[in-house]
Amino acid sequence: MAKPRAKAPTKTVVVRCSACSTALFKYHKGGKGSLVKCFKTRIAKDYTLTPCVCPECGSEFAREQMIRGVPAYKIISGKARI
């Protein structure tokens, strides 16, 4: 499969925890679909202290994976929102 584009999209969204609405990170999102995966290279500002764990409530919102040969966070369904 092809790798994601090298140039990040201009549109940024704030990804929040579904449980406590704490900002997790700002992400350069392309397209208009739902958030399923977040490539680490496209994260503009990271507010988490531990990867994939909400700093406020401590719930795990994603899993670290390699997607198309690039490190990414695979979002657990219903744990994070835009």
Rank of each mutant, 00 (worst) to 15 (best):
M1H: 12
M1R: 02
M1A: 11
A6E: 15
A6Y: 06
A6I: 15
P9M: 02
P9R: 10
T10P: 02
T10C: 05
K11H: 14
K11T: 14
T12N: 12
V13E: 13
V14Q: 06
V15P: 01
R16C: 14
R16I: 14
C17W: 03
C17V: 09
C17K: 00
C17R: 02
C17N: 01
S18A: 14
A19M: 12
S21Y: 12
S21R: 14
S21I: 07
S21E: 15
T22G: 09
T22Y: 07
A23S: 15
L24I: 04
F25T: 01
F25I: 01
K26H: 13
K26E: 15
Y27G: 06
Y27L: 08
Y27C: 08
H28G: 07
K29E: 07
K29Y: 01
K32L: 08
K32P: 00
G33H: 09
G33E: 15
S34T: 11
L35T: 05
V36P: 00
K37S: 14
K37V: 15
C38M: 13
C38Y: 00
T41R: 11
R42I: 01
I43L: 02
I43F: 05
I43R: 01
A44N: 12
A44G: 00
A44L: 13
K45D: 06
K45S: 03
D46A: 03
D46N: 15
Y47W: 03
Y47P: 00
Y47H: 13
T48E: 05
T48L: 03
L49I: 11
T50P: 03
T50D: 13
P51W: 02
P51E: 09
P51N: 10
P51Y: 06
C52M: 03
V53D: 00
V53L: 09
V53C: 02
V53N: 01
C54F: 09
P55Q: 02
P55W: 01
P55I: 07
E56V: 03
E56Y: 10
C57D: 15
C57H: 08
G58M: 05
G58N: 08
G58I: 11
S59V: 10
E60A: 05
F61Q: 09
F61P: 04
A62F: 00
A62R: 04
A62C: 04
R63D: 13
E64D: 09
Q65K: 14
Q65E: 15
M66D: 11
M66R: 03
I67F: 12
R68T: 12
R68I: 06
G69C: 06
V70D: 10
P71W: 01
P71E: 07
P71C: 06
A72T: 04
A72G: 06
K74N: 11
K74D: 14
I75R: 04
G78V: 12
G78A: 07
G78F: 08
G78R: 12
K79E: 11
A80L: 03
R81P: 00
R81M: 14
R81A: 11
I82E: 11
I82F: 03
I82R: 05
